[in-house]
Design a protein around this nucleic acid. Structure first.
Lengths: 342, 342
DNA sequence: ATGAAAGCGCTAACAG
DNA sequence: CTGTTAGCGCTTTCAT
């Protein structure tokens, strides 16, 4: 209606108020569904807002209220397809709650992780969901400097002193299922491929592995390697080339992503997966069953992890309790694990 | 130093200015690297900011300058691992430029795409990188209502009337290479699996396919299906069950993601990939070479697409020109494509 | 139930 | 070269 609406000037709350013939405060109350404004006025304001195509100016709200309406998702390694579905679930859940998602990948660098936390703090993210690198202090820094909600993803033992919400796979069960499976196939020398102790966010996997090995009097070996695809292939490849009489006959990995690196390693070392060696992955990516041989793995609902993380974050934002959600894991035996040959 | 610094009150520019003994405007100028402030003052301000751990309050800057310092990335389907690396490249490039990335997935829903654009507008994203669904008006709406920079990802023919930056694969070359490859293997009945015409963001693939089929007097067939994994498997599965004498002997897909759905379809239909039928994918995901049989595909640098999109966006944000970056495609023949059987 | 006014933290005129 | 000041659009207290 007004002439100044002409040239891509955003309509402000003041415009809406003017159009409705009320004060800005009345308009604000009306639009935010607060009491203290009569029904006719509320209707009039809503109509005006609609007519003018009013959209609240986010940074003004954020400046005033201290809430940005955005939450951050910080992933340790965005190259692993595992996190795709986690992002999806997280994103979908946040969208429903009207929250925007700011994303970042640490690429397994503590420096990058630290930087990103600073960025998210500066952007006043209302909450942080963090799949941390082992050993990082990102979680602690976030809590200390913001006091805002925090959810740790797949990091059951990370920062145990921190009282935070957590969403993670039941990895003890996952490891136990993998070990039992291989044990029943007759494997006695089993390796677990894991990030170096001080980089690992899921130490409990290795701990469980060690305990199981001891319990069943098996020869357990922890192969530590960086979680980059090619690096892992290299390191494990060397193990695969060791003396056949003493090298592991089976490998357990943290992810199908890394398991696929082991396929490369095996090819390079001239050992056949599902024959000379067995491999059990973790995640059950959709391509895993298409590998040659199909990858035995531990299935988890990745989307659900994202949903859980977002839900916990939102819950805490709404003043609710901190909580921990454990996502179940189910072994899916396929061709990559077979009877031990020696 | 000051007593009120005690209880998680954020340090503001005023605090820094006070600490340095200058005005806030001087502090602002100093920190933002503007001229009009003496070197000693600049040093003093920087030191004070450092000492106090000052971080600029983003929403205040945004409110004042109209720039949020965040760009949005809107992906049509975040389930396709293709986009993981795109996100990575985009994210990494934006991080370098000090830009935050807000992400969203349309999940092949125009409504969702529209909503997300509204969200990004409301959040005052400084720019938008969009891998659009075919037929959507998200790009146009963004441009019309914000006038801010826009980059279209993998949508060479989308919204041709829009003067925008674009980053996409050379898909004409990609299709041509795939067709030539299959042609040389003796295939004469070739299908391309694509999204329905009005949903497709990369029509030029189908157009090129049709042209090549005509040119070489081959029997081309366009199998239209939704780009959901299971849906595609279903639709193509039906084609694979048709009369062997007339059904296609080779399939070209838009993505390795969908190609893997064809593996499922083939298994269900009782036809052997790389024997009864040939498949050529597109993207060269890292798992593609591990499939059984290894997937013939067209390799593209996905990370680079993300980098290009971000670079174009940043370039335009800095007042630079609009531009188009075409990422090359290279055929990688593997086991899934073999000599035609009939 | 309503409006006037203060002010979130910052930048950019403007005045000195 | 430096400091004072006026808002950006919104929410929220405080009068009315």
């Amino acid at each position: 209606m007004t002439a100044d609406q002409s040239h891509r000037r955003r309509v402000s709350l003041a415009d809406v108020a003017r159009e409705a013939g009320v004060s800005t405060s009345a308009a604000s109350f009306a639009l935010n569904g607060r009491t203290g404004v009569s029904e006719p006025v509320r209707e009039r304001v809503k109509a005006a807002a609609e007519a003018l195509g009013y959209v609240p100016w986010n940074s003004a709200v954020a400046l005033r209220t201290g809430r940005s309406g955005a939450v951050a998702l910080l992933i340790r390694n965005l190259r692993n397809p595992f996190f795709l579905d986690v992002i999806n679930g997280f994103d979908a859940t946040c969208a429903t709650a009207g929250l925007a998602v700011i994303i970042g990948s640490a690429d397994y660098s503590s420096d990058r992780e630290r930087e990103l936390v600073s960025t998210f703090i500066a952007r006043e993210a209302d909450g942080l969901a963090l799949a941390p690198i082992g050993g990082g202090d990102a979680a602690a820094r976030w809590q200390k400097s913001t006091g805002k909600p925090l959810v740790l993803i797949n990091a059951a033992n990370h920062s145990p002193q921190l009282d935070v919400s957590r969403a993670h796979v039941d990895s003890e069960s996952a490891v136990r299922q993998a070990v039992d499976h291989l044990r029943e196939l007759g494997h006695r020398r089993i390796a677990i491929v894991a990030a170096p102790h001080d980089r690992s966010a899921d130490d409990e996997r290795v701990d469980t592995f060690r305990a199981e090995m001891t319990r069943h009097r098996l020869e357990g070996r922890v192969v530590e390697t960086a979680m980059q695809h090619d690096r892992a292939a290299e390191v494990v490849g060397a193990v695969m080339r060791e003396d056949p009489a003493t090298r592991p006959t089976a490998y357990i990995t943290n992810s199908d992503y890394i398991a696929s690196a082991l396929y490369f390693a095996a090819a390079g070392a001239g050992v056949r997966v599902g024959e000379d060696i067995s491999i059990v992955g973790h995640d059950d990516l959709s391509t895993s069953r298409l590998l040659a041989p199909a990858l035995s793995t531990v299935a988890v609902d990745r989307f659900e992890i994202g949903v859980a993380a977002a839900t916990l974050l939102i819950q805490e934002l709404d003043g609710g309790e901190r909580d921990t959600v454990v996502i179940p894991a189910t072994l899916v035996p396929r061709g990559s694990s077979a009877t031990a040959v020696n």
